[in-house]
Amino acid sequence: MVAEALPPPDDRLEDRLEAVARAHGFAAFGIARADAAPETAERLNQWLAEGRHGDMIWMESRAEQRGSPQGLWPEVRSVIALGMSYAPALDPLALAAHRTRGRISVYAQGGDYHDVVKKALKGVARWLIGEAEDAEVKVFVDTAPVMEKPLSAAAGLGWQGKHTNLVSREHGSWLFLGAIYTTLDLTPSKAGRDTCGSCAACQDACPTDAFPAPYRLDARRCISYLTIEHNGPIPVALRRGIGNRIYGCDDCLAVCPWNKFADTAHRHRAFLPRAELAAPSLGDLLDLDDAAFREVFAGSPIKRIGRGRMVRNAAIAAGNSGDRGFVPVLERLAKDESPMVADAALWALDELAS
């Protein structure tokens, strides 16, 4: 499939590179100079100084490398920014009223994006090395100290919206971002332009008030952070706001008006939702032991949070459901060997009793 889409050799390198990227499944492509987002380090350091990263210690420990591409790799001259679409066919907010079902963020309902995007990045990088033998490259997707969002904005994929995520005119808020660093001097694309205007939909939609101001996120109040990254009891004051969200939150993304232009035809098939992850039963999740958790979430990014965090999240969702049918399983979980599971179950029992 990729070979059939290769461009003629007389096109300029940047055009051929874009054609190859699209043949590998990327819906968005752009190039930025390695020094194109100089404000990144200052904004990152301020965010860290305010403690808004919560338990994400890796953000702090490698801040110097994260602040600029040259901080990670001094030889880099250009950044190839790439986006793979996971635009949902259904409204991500539709499950809000189905309180006995868990809501999983759209990005985690299909295959693990780390594997899919990295494989495609490596394919594009191999082609580039073949075309420019003096080129050196490094590929990154999410797990390295790379600030993909400001770099993608500098490369013209979109802009960082008021919810701090990338927004694309063509793909809305639904892009997995990857980057290829290279020693080549490539012609940069035109940077993205902020088109949020006076819209505050994402700010107004947040159930836990995680935005102290437009373009600023306090991760400690963000449901995605609380249900995925935070390993321990979730602050009691934020539990009711979590509703039936058990892994991540799409609210600030889903309400963005630019999503009406997102074409699901560009969605990578690897991210089509798995039936068991589209609307899982809270009762089934509360019954999970370690072995069952690993089986259900094999091949999913969800597997990395472990059984404890998932059952903790499901217990909070059960407490928010108003359904006393969950009482027996919650009573059992109140004696769970995981303190955070037991704590969440006891809280849920109190909520259902009130």
Rank of each mutant, 00 (worst) to 15 (best):
T187A: 14
F176L: 09
W127E: 07
A154T: 06
E133C: 06
D134C: 05
V124C: 05
A125I: 11
V167W: 01
E133I: 08
D194A: 08
Q160R: 15
D185Y: 06
G172F: 09
A155T: 12
W127G: 06
R126T: 13
P188D: 13
W127T: 11
G158T: 12
E131K: 13
H163R: 00
V137N: 06
S168R: 05
G156N: 07
V146M: 07
K149H: 09
T187N: 07
Q160D: 09
E131S: 12
E136N: 09
S189H: 13
G172T: 08
A191T: 12
P188M: 10
K149W: 00
M147C: 10
R193F: 02
I180L: 05
D194V: 02
S189F: 12
G161P: 05
M147A: 15
G130Q: 12
E133R: 15
L184I: 01
T187L: 14
A191D: 02
V141M: 05
L186Y: 08
V167T: 05
K138M: 14
V137F: 02
A155E: 03
T182G: 03
L184G: 03
R193T: 15
W159F: 08
P188L: 13
L151E: 08
A125W: 01
E148G: 02
D185K: 12
F176S: 06
T143M: 03
G178E: 08
A144Q: 14
D185V: 10
K190S: 14
V137L: 12
L184K: 05
L186N: 06
V141H: 15
T187S: 13
P150I: 02
K149V: 13
D134Q: 15
L166M: 08
V124M: 03
T183V: 07
K138G: 04
T183Q: 04
L157K: 00
K162N: 03
A125C: 03
V124S: 05
E136C: 10
T143G: 03
R169F: 00
G158D: 04
D194F: 00
D134K: 14
A155V: 10
K190V: 14
T143N: 09
G192A: 06
A154H: 05
L186I: 04
S152V: 03
D185L: 10
V124F: 04
L157N: 01
W174C: 03
P188E: 13
F140Y: 15
D134F: 10
K149I: 12
L175H: 11
D142H: 13
W159S: 02
T164G: 02
S173P: 04
S189N: 12
S173R: 10
A153S: 14
T164V: 14
L186T: 06
R193M: 11
A153E: 15
E170F: 04
H163W: 01
E136S: 14
E136I: 06
